[in-house]
């Protein structure tokens, strides 16, 4: 799952090295447009519903956090 998440992230922002990046949202690396695209792609790929409730920086700040959130929603 982690590789797929990295692939999706890289397709949205090819300029960022997501393997090691932290603070994706709280550090301002991902902008709101990127986040909306990311949520859309994640929802389609993993068949999960990501709602406004999940939209906190802690859930999107790193690849590991995103993977953890998807697992909890499945």
């Amino acid at each position: 799952m982690k590789e797929t998440v990295i692939e999706i992230l890289a397709s949205i922002r090819p300029d960022v090295d997501f393997e090691s990046a932290e603070g994706l949202v709280s550090g301002g690396i991902l902008e709101s447009f990127d986040l909306v695209s990311l949520i859309s792609e994640l929802s389609d790929e993993f068949s999960v519903t990501i709602s406004a409730k999940e939209l906190v920086p802690e859930n999107f700040d790193s690849v590991d956090a995103i993977v953890k959130m998807i697992e909890s929603l499945r």
Partner: peptide, 28 residues
Amino acid sequence: VFYPLSLSRPMAKFKKSLKKKVSRVTVN
């Protein structure tokens, strides 16, 4: 406003209807 609207059900329906016509990136 921005996130809740982006993730709302009507928006999801609208996006679904568009996906048959244009690419995923364009829909976003």
